[in-house]
Write a protein that binds this DNA or RNA. Structure first.
Length: 567
RNA sequence: CGGGGCGUGGCUCAGCCUGGUAGAGCGCCUGGUUCGGGACCAGGAGGCCGGUGGUUCGAAUCCACUCGCCCCGACCA
């Protein structure tokens, strides 16, 4: 294609609204334009890149026997009411009414629609397994869209769903997806981690996320470089650092002491001259309307995800100050577990075996010393703690690091969540009606591009992996009005085309600097510069990523690039 | 939803405090000179200053309301 005929509106300056690199470069490179908060138009270059990405996705999905479909984005409320997600999804679901006042929503994923198709048609175990997928636009009414294409209200997702006869068969479908996802992300040129993930409120036994390390990300991955353990912070477990001071010995009884104005762990630590780890942190949460007291070591923080799975609550929040006062007769700064009878008390495992700690006394301005869990109050132990950097890995003892990441893919075992609520059953070999077990698997198409840019860019622009760049190679005659340069460039352009390269000829009447800057900005992997050296029959081939330049014979240029592309 | 910031030509921004002719750089158009890392000269087009209402002889500027966008937090299959 001829650059002069294309719409590639590059910008010299960064638009003010863009903060993260991928957003800035997508805008500057003329890939995208914003239509509204979290809603973007994908221009020519972005669309080309997405077509390359989705092609890879299709090839790998098809390779595991998945069948592509295309389902409606507009869904009737009834379907979502059946699965319960009409309520559960709350404000995240885009809802609308038609002219007759019927409730509809825009799908954020398609478990319901897929299940409704399956329950109408799948009758026998002989029809299983099935893997169905689509590449389709999804909608989420994000409270805060941000970071360019990383967090948006409308986006493209590859979502697939597996239907299996039993758990073992689901494992097989899951493993197929796991492998396919690795191939997809490998082919897209991404550096990624596969981490254990929380399977969410929707149930399900196992879940992995595919993560790309990036400061632009919103998830934290806990990683042990020694043994390779990797998990989403939400569900990660690790051994905490040892308490900063040993507990006092002996079978001491709790003893109240005056702590005027000491409200926070930090203040109390300074006041008592004891480390934060000598204290118990008391958190009051209201889970499904009922209060729960959660205890953690003073220097630890609560993992809300772990908390919610422990208490199996659909909804929970920190208690309001008035509620705390009413339940404890004291304010948040002086709460403790001793004597608490009117609610469940759950205790983080890091407190197991600890003795004679400091806790609130449920009387303002007083705390207790010598509080021992299990003796001075009943303790139900759970892993409630959010892992912190520096903790020790449970498998190898290595130091745990926290890495900020962008989630590009997520696979998980749904179990019977939808087949149960929506009545998807088949007959097994014995003629018995059994529920179908399902899995669900997603890939964010835009996030692949964004993550690649986050991963591969420099001060001049994007350095996209060849497999997902909008073009393979740009032919850049230094001066297009020079007849010799022009005809050589055209020749090279034609031979690139014959070799099936995605080639663009920069035939614009621009100064060379402008063409180089633009080519660097939009991230075309290879550039063939036709300039001075043409007199010797040579052109330059520049690798966008390494900036390495090689002189080759002009007649060999296309083949040279083609061989690089294949490498 | 809470906190903060910003809306002035396509982009980046000045002007606003202290009301009185709407500006700069980049981009765009025409002509010319240039041509290996965002050229130069000359000429030119393009803005109901986010919207509504108010104050005033007069509002980009002051006041009120409102809409939009960005950031932090909350939220997050």
């Amino acid at each position: 294609m001829l650059w002069s005929k294309l719409f590639i509106p590059t910008l010299r300056e960064n638009p003010a609204e863009a903060e993260v690199v991928s957003h800035q470069l997508l805008l500057r490179g003329g890939y995208i334009r914003q239509l509204a908060a979290g809603i973007y138009s994908y221009l020519f270059l972005a669309q080309r890149s997405f077509l390359k990405i989705t092609r890879i996705v299709r090839e790998e999905m098809d390779a595991i026997g998945a069948q592509e479909m295309l389902l409606p984005a507009l869904n009737p409320a009834e379907l979502w009411q059946e699965s319960g997600r009409w309520e559960i999804m709350g404000d995240n679901l885009f809802r609308l009414k038609d002219r007759f006042g019927r409730d509809l929503c825009l799908g954020m994923t398609h478990e319901e629609v897929m299940t409704s198709i399956a329950r109408g048609e799948l009758r026998s175990y002989k029809q299983l397994p099935q893997i169905w997928y689509q590449i389709q636009t999804k909608f989420r009414d994000e409270p805060r869209p941000k970071s360019g294409l990383l967090r948006v209200r409308q986006f493209i997702m590859k979502d697939s769903y597996s239907f299996d006869i039993d758990a073992a068969a689901l494992d097989a479908s899951y493993d197929k997806h796991y492998d396919a996802y690795c191939k997809i992300f490998d082919r897209c040129g991404l550096k990624y981690m596969v981490v254990e993930a929380h399977s969410g409120a929707m149930g399900g036994s196992q879940s992995h996320e595919f993560m790309v390390a990036s400061d632009a990300g919103e998830d934290y991955v806990v990683n042990c470089s020694a043994c390779g353990y990797a998990a989403n912070l939400e569900k990660a477990a690790a051994r905490p650092t040892a308490p900063a001071a040993a507990d006092p010995d002996g079978d001491l009884t709790p003893e109240q002491f005056h702590t005027p104005g000491q409200k926070t762990i930090e203040q109390l630590s300074a006041f008592t001259k004891l480390p934060e780890s000598a204290q118990m942190k008391s958190l009051v949460l209201i889970a499904d309307g009922k209060p729960i007291l959660a205890l953690l070591r003073g220097d630890h923080s609560l993992s809300e995800t772990k908390f919610s799975s422990v208490v199996k609550a659909t909804e929970f929040r920190p208690a309001h100050p008035e509620e705390i006062r009413q339940l404890f007769g004291a304010d948040a700064g002086s709460l403790g577990p001793v004597g608490v009878k009117n609610m469940r008390v759950i205790v983080d495992e890091a407190l197991k075996g600890r003795r004679n700690m400091i806790a609130g006394s449920n009387k303002d301005d007083y705390h207790l010393r010598h509080v021992t869990p299990g003796e001075d109050f009943d303790a139900e132990y759970f892993d409630l703690r959010q892992v912190a950097a520096g903790d020790a890995c449970l498998t190898c003892g290595g130091a745990i690091a926290l890495i900020k990441c962008v989630e590009i893919g997520h696979i998980f075992k749904l179990g019977y969540r939808y087949s149960e609520s929506m009545g998807l059953r088949v007959l097994n070999e014995a003629g018995e009606e059994i529920k179908v077990i399902m899995g669900s698997y997603g890939i964010g198409i835009e996030r692949i591009l964004s993550a690649a840019i986050e991963l591969y860019h420099d001060k001049d622009g994007m350095a996209l992996p060849p497999s997902i760049a909008p073009f393979d190679v740009v032919v850049t005659p230094v001066n297009y009005s020079d007849a010799a340069l022009r005809s050589a460039a055209q020749e090279i352009y034609e031979s690139c085309r014959k070799m099936d390269l995605d080639v663009i000829l920069d035939d614009r009447d621009e100064r060379p600097g402008v063409k180089f800057k633009d080519a660097d900005l939009i991230g075309i992997p290879y550039r063939i510069t036709v300039g001075k050296k043409l007199a010797q029959g040579q052109v330059e081939i520049i690798d966008r990523k390494t900036k390495a330049s090689e002189d080759v014979d002009k007649d060999y240029a296309a083949a040279f690039v083609a061989s690089k592309m294949r490498a």
